[in-house]
Amino acid sequence: MRQKKRSWQCSGGKRGLVPVATFRNIAIGQYIPGESMLHRLDPRTKIAVTLLLVVGLFFIDSYLGYGLAALYIALAVLNSGIPARFLFRGLKPVIIIILLTFALNSFLTEGEIIWQWGFLSLTKEGLYKGGLLAVRLILLIVGTSILTLTTSPLALTDGLESLLRPGRRVGIPAHELAMMMTIALRFIPTLLEETEKIMKAQMARGADFESGNLLQRAKSLLPLLVPLFVSAFRRADELAIAMEARCYRGGEGRTKLKQLAFRPADFFVLAGSGVFIVWLALVA
């Protein structure tokens, strides 16, 4: 049986090898071009359905409801053509948060005790609640990742601006808000990749991010902050210069090469998804 190759890096001159921490697994903020129906949908449709899904997941309180929501998300993933392993790989950076959420709810929720050791009490109700919250987090991450994976930055900006446009009557800067949110989303994978490069560079100089307890590992990450902030400000400055060089002056008077327009598929997806998600939130 062939073994999967892993990326290894020497650390601190110590004997042995430690796996290089990678941040490229996070799917939120990345875009994968494609020709699927999900890629061709109007960005406003995808944004609206994603918001409905996020809100609906907080109203579901049963495993049956989450199972149906997972089936809905699975159908969306199949339609998008995005490899499922890519989405699930994006859960690795937050797996500790998911496990911690499950553990805290399992031991801190009062109810029928099924196991006890000292002051720790594992309850039946805690397991049920912890499982629900863990599944909710997984579905939230996967569901929101589909939006950015199937929507280009330009389309996402146009869609957000169009949805926020009614707020301009009360002084809400729709274009500027949409631009800021889109840039923030797109900077996530960029900054994580920069963090990985800095970690590899410091490991080559003898830094050790793998040994020690949790507190010691957290302290070892502090030297990453200064170069990471410097890199972030440098990239932001370069982006600002590039936008000014292209005569960017905000959304006032700007025209668009591609005008957004709803198609029959958008109405079908929006209506069908809306009815299904509302039904899940109220009934399941």
Rank of each mutant, 00 (worst) to 15 (best):
L221H: 03
I277W: 07
E110A: 13
K129G: 04
G65S: 03
C10M: 10
L38A: 01
F59D: 00
R246H: 12
M37C: 05
R263Y: 12
L87M: 13
K14S: 09
L71R: 01
L215G: 09
L222C: 06
F86N: 00
E244N: 10
L68F: 12
T45P: 03
K256Y: 15
R254D: 06
P153R: 03
Q9H: 09
I113H: 09
T150A: 03
A284I: 05
N25W: 15
L214N: 04
F209G: 03
A178I: 08
A261R: 15
Y31Q: 03
R169I: 11
K129P: 10
R217N: 08
S106E: 05
W115T: 00
L225D: 02
P227A: 05
A21R: 10
G29W: 09
A245E: 12
S220G: 04
S106C: 11
R246S: 08
R186T: 05
L257Q: 05
M179D: 09
L154K: 01
E112W: 11
A232C: 05
A74N: 01
F209T: 03
F209M: 02
V20N: 07
L160E: 06
L104I: 15
S211E: 14
P83A: 00
L57W: 03
L132F: 13
G34C: 11
V55A: 08
I82A: 02
L91F: 07
D61S: 12
A21S: 06
R2S: 02
V135R: 01
R24M: 10
L224K: 05
I26T: 13
L156F: 11
T255Y: 14
Q116R: 14
M203W: 11
N25Y: 15
I95D: 01
I73A: 00
L127A: 09
L160S: 07
L163P: 12
Q9I: 14
L41G: 06
T109V: 14
T255E: 13
G90C: 01
A242D: 09
V230D: 06
V54M: 10
G167C: 07
I95N: 01
R6P: 06
A69G: 00
A76I: 05
A265D: 04
K124D: 11
T144N: 08
Q3R: 06
L270I: 10
C10G: 07
I95P: 05
V170L: 12
Q9L: 15
P83E: 02
L224W: 10
P43S: 00
L132Q: 12
L51V: 13
G126H: 03
K200M: 10
Y128T: 14
